[in-house]
């Protein structure tokens, strides 16, 4: 019986909302803490990290590449929660891609083999693909896109991911699933914080000024 008490207790509490304050743990410290896991768990965590790294890349891939990646991940991933996580993320990516194409008057892209793809293709000409009830964030996301507010659209997207994964997390304590969901939610925090580059640069300059003024560093 594998136990995750030490690892979970060593991780600081994530904020209630992803846009609420700084990231509580740096990437390097998180990597160090996750190294407490055994080999098999580390492999699963690596799959999650690889997926998120792939998910962050610029959108210059072809539809065929994305379909191939989805097929590979479905074949490779054995852990049910990680599979659910990837499935959920792919559904959201697919919806966003479909909305962008619909808005630009393009035909539907080649989606990965998911039941949602069939539905979207069937309701291509309808607003929000008649998915407003199933995905309640969709109208708000569409509105933000209409208003030329990409940051707000991203905020709605991240809010949905954060809330969804937080709800899943409520079912687990001190288990491997809670480790995976912690990493997934940390990824959202990190992505959101990375967007605010201007603020980060200003904060860095302020800190440097503080240190220089207090004589903490000899130049």
């Amino acid at each position: 019986m594998q136990s995750y008490y030490t690892l979970m207790a060593s991780l600081p509490q994530l904020p209630r909302e992803f846009d609420d304050g700084p990231i509580p743990i740096s990437a390097a410290t998180l990597r160090h803490r996750v190294s407490m896991l055994d080999h098999h768990d580390r492999q699963t965590v690596q799959q999650v990290s690889d997926f998120f790294r792939w998910d962050r890349q610029p959108r210059d891939r072809s539809d065929a590449e994305i379909r191939a990646t989805h097929r590979r991940l479905v074949a490779e991933i054995r852990h049910p929660l990680v599979a659910q996580l990837v499935h959920h993320r792919f559904e959201m990516r697919m919806l966003v891609a479909a909305l962008r194409c619909q808005r630009s008057g393009l035909p539907p892209p080649e989606f990965p083999e998911l039941p949602l793809a069939v539905w979207i293709q069937r309701h291509w000409d309808e607003p929000c693909f008649r998915l407003n009830d199933r995905f309640r964030w969709l109208p708000r996301f569409c509105q933000a896109i209409e208003d030329h507010q990409p940051r707000r659209a991203q905020w709605h997207l991240f809010t949905e991911l954060w809330n969804h994964w937080s709800r899943w997390n409520d079912q687990y304590t001190f288990s491997f699933e809670s480790v995976v969901l912690y990493l997934a939610r940390w990824e959202i925090l990190h992505r959101w914080a990375s967007q605010n580059e201007q603020c980060g640069r200003q904060r860095f300059h302020d800190l440097v000024d503080d240190i220089l003024q207090t004589g903490g560093v000899n130049c």
């Binding site: 136990s3 008490y5 030490t6 690892l7 979970m8 207790a9 060593s10 991780l11 600081p12 803490r33 001190f174």
Partner: peptide, 14 residues
């Protein structure tokens, strides 16, 4: 005690 002790050791890191 093992469960509590492991959690305590983890918390001491934080």
């Amino acid at each position: 005690c093992a469960a509590g002790g492991q959690a305590a050791c983890g918390a001491m890191l934080d």
